[in-house]
Design a protein around this nucleic acid. Structure first.
Lengths: 215, 215
DNA sequence: GCCGCTGCGAATGTATACAGTCGCAGCGTT
DNA sequence: AACGCTGCGACTGTATACATTCGCAGCGGC
């Protein structure tokens, strides 16, 4: 699975690039996605681009208004509340299986990601990518294909809003400390601790984002 | 939202038709999806068909092997266990909001669906569609856009496997009775009862499917 | 007889071209 | 001055056509 030589048709490549752009703030919620312009920027034709856009639409990252174009999805306050509820229902639940599936080299990889992230300082885009990879790699350890797929979608959906509001140094430090705590829980194979840290981490993000989000 | 005059580009129509086919057993897991053949059958060209297929792929209903075609996704036993875990985490949680959002006419609509389903007897395809609509309409009452999206995906994913094994008259009766119990819980605005019935319903489906699924 | 190479066929991937729809500016009417 | 109508422009939706890749059958060499 890890080394699956995924032959790469350009739809998938484009979808990845767009997801990354949305995640790291290159494409903000609400941005109109004009097909010809985007296709020119990415140097592909409209057909594979449209396929990628339909993929992202199914993931909730893009909204399609038939005959009127597509745009990066915007989440209402209710959506964001819903999103964090979902995260709280899905993510802590995996703690046991994560610990069970975690090997020494996984701990090291995660520690490295967490440290790289701390080093990024206030580079929001850089942090966003590392943050995503950190969480994704943790949840991969649970070996639950469908859960991972859904959590992955949630992480992408939330990222533009996390990015938007997480700026203060204090908040950055809290996040980095919680990541370090997760790594520590993994190192000691302490599933219950991991679960508690995940809950605190998600609740912290939720409270921080909701306190600042309008509506 | 209910009366959103959704202008209908053919990608979406095609995606709906394919989803329905997968749900009611017209397209079984593993079926190879040859684009030209499918396009001819549906009387559309390959471009909108491909867009629809990419949508379903993002929903997990179809798998794409680049340069080698697409096929209806097959779930392993582990996937199915994961799927029911997810259902148990997401669906009962909505009971409170469902009851809060439920109006008299909703109760009637659901009662009607449940009764139509009972009348279908052993018509598996007919029951599958009604079953899907019944659950979908219940969860719509919670007014949680993202949760609904995910649950919708789960219901579509599980349906081919529910259909496959739910055949005995006894099992059909159990399902119909549980649906009736849900309607009754809604009528009396009993959120706690609804939650318990949902749990029992999903657990019942899980046990029945897993007991018969190979692997 | 087994392994590897070659070429054909089938299906996917992509581009170009055309058709259809929406929205807005500008004119004309009342 | 406000309203509606009309035509243009921009963009999306779809089809046709071409390029590319993969798999397998059949042949040849070892």
């Amino acid at each position: 699975m890890t080394s699956a030589a995924r032959a790469t048709n350009s739809s998938n490549v484009i979808a990845d690039r767009l997801r990354t752009s949305i995640r790291d703030g290159g494409l903000l919620p609400g941005t109109r996605l004009v097909q010809e312009k985007l296709a020119a920027e990415l140097d592909v034709s409209r057909i594979p681009l449209r396929e990628a856009l339909h993929t992202l639409a199914a993931e909730g990252l893009i909204e399609v208004l038939p005959q009127r174009g597509m745009h990066v999805a915007e989440l209402s306050r209710a959506d964001i509340e819903d999103l964090f509820e979902l995260r709280l229902q899905l993510e802590p639940q995996l703690a046991d299986e994560i610990v069970r599936g975690c090997r020494e080299r996984d701990v090291e990889a995660l520690r490295s990601l967490a440290e790289q992230m701390r080093d990024k300082g206030a580079d929001a885009a850089g942090r966003a990518t590392l943050n995503y990879e950190f969480h994704r790699r943790i949840y991969e350890l649970a070996d639950r294909r469908l859960s991972l797929r859904f959590i992955d979608q949630l992480l992408h959906l939330v990222e533009p809003y996390s990015r938007r509001w997480v700026r203060s140094g204090h908040e950055l430090t809290r996040i980095d400390d919680e990541h370090a705590a997760m790594v520590e829980a993994l190192r000691t194979h302490d599933a219950e601790l991991l679960r508690r840290v995940i809950v605190a981490h998600v609740e912290g993000a939720r409270d921080h984002v909701l306190a600042r989000h309008p509506g």
